[in-house]
C-alpha cells in the first residue's frame, strides 16, 4: 500500500467524488488546534507532575470533592478498609451514588491480575468520559498519601485509586463492583521498565519537553542507550 506511485488508480474516481462533495459543502468553522483528526476539548489547564500536584485536575470545579477525597484517604489509612455511605452533592448535579461500597486494599505483591480473555469476554463499555479528580495530598505518620477519584458523567463514583502511597508505590485501592484487573497494578516506572522508547498519543512540541520520551532522548544524547 505504501509503494503506489502510478498516476491513476481505480480509487481515484471515488476520492475525487468525495473531494468534490467536500468542496460543495459549506466549510465548517475552524476548530481548536488539536492534532490530526482530533479536536481539543475545553479541559482545565493542568500542570501534571509525576506524582500529581495537589488537586490540580479540574481543581476549580471540584474543590469540595477534593476535600472529601482527602478525608477518604485519611480514613483509609486508619482503617485499611471501610464502608462508607453517600457523599453529598457539591451543588453541581454531581450526585455521588456510591452506597455502602466495600473498600479493598490490594497489596501489589499479589496483584489481582489475571489476563482478561481476549475481547469476547470483555464487558461492553458504554461509558461517556469520566471525570478524574485528584485529592489533596494527605500527610500522615507513615508518609504522604493522595487518592484519585473517577466520576461518571452522572456523578457516580467509578473508581478510587492511590496516586501516592505511604510506604510503597505498589498498593492499589479498589472500590465497588469493578473486578477487572487494575491498570495501576501494571503501571511501571520508566526506570524499572528500562524502555528504549515510549508510545502514546501524539504530544505537541511543548508537551514533549515534559514527556518521558524527552528524558530518554536526553540520556540518549549522552550516549546512554537505556535509563538505568
Amino acid at each position: 500500500m505504501t509503494t503506489q506511485t502510478s498516476g491513476s488508480d481505480p480509487l481515484d474516481s471515488e476520492i475525487a467524488a468525495r473531494l468534490e462533495r467536500l468542496a460543495a459543502r459549506k466549510a465548517a468553522p475552524a476548530l481548536n488546534r488539536g492534532g490530526g483528526s482530533t479536536v481539543s476539548m475545553a479541559y482545565e489547564p493542568k500542570d501534571v507532575s509525576a506524582s500529581g500536584s495537589n488537586g490540580v485536575r479540574n481543581g476549580r470545579r471540584h474543590a469540595a470533592k477534593r476535600a472529601r477525597i482527602a478525608a477518604l484517604a485519611a480514613s483509609l489509612l486508619t482503617t485499611g478498609s471501610l464502608t462508607f455511605g453517600l457523599f453529598a452533592a457539591d451543588g453541581q448535579s454531581n450526585r455521588v451514588l456510591v452506597g455502602a461500597a466495600g473498600v479493598v486494599v490490594v497489596p501489589s505483591a499479589s496483584p489481582p491480575v489475571t489476563a482478561l480473555p481476549p475481547v469476547s469476554a470483555s464487558p461492553p463499555v458504554t461509558a461517556a468520559a469520566p471525570t478524574v479528580v485528584d485529592g489533596d495530598a494527605f500527610r500522615n505518620p507513615y508518609g504522604d498519601v493522595q487518592v484519585e477519584a473517577t466520576f461518571s458523567p452522572d456523578g457516580a463514583l467509578l473508581d478510587v485509586s492511590m496516586l501516592r502511597f505511604p510506604n510503597s508505590n505498589r498498593e492499589s485501592v479498589q472500590i465497588n463492583q469493578y473486578a477487572t484487573p487494575r491498570l495501576n497494578s501494571e503501571a511501571l516506572s520508566a526506570q524499572s521498565a528500562q524502555v528504549d522508547t515510549i508510545s502514546g498519543a501524539t504530544y505537541t512540541s511543548n508537551d514533549y519537553e515534559r514527556s518521558l520520551q524527552s528524558a530518554i532522548d536526553l540520556a540518549r544524547a549522552d550516549g546512554i542507550t537505556q535509563l538505568a
Binding site: L183, A187, A193, I198, S199
Partner: peptide
C-alpha cells in the same frame, strides 16, 4: 508516540517500547 522499528537496539535484543499510562504521564 508513533514508532517505526528496524533491527535491534543491541545484538539480538528486542526493542523495549513502553506504552504510556493513560492517566500518569511518567508511568508506562
Amino acid at each position: 508516540g508513533d514508532i517505526a522499528i528496524r533491527g535491534h537496539p543491541l545484538g539480538m535484543e528486542p526493542w523495549r517500547v513502553g506504552i504510556r499510562h493513560p492517566e500518569m504521564r511518567d508511568a508506562v
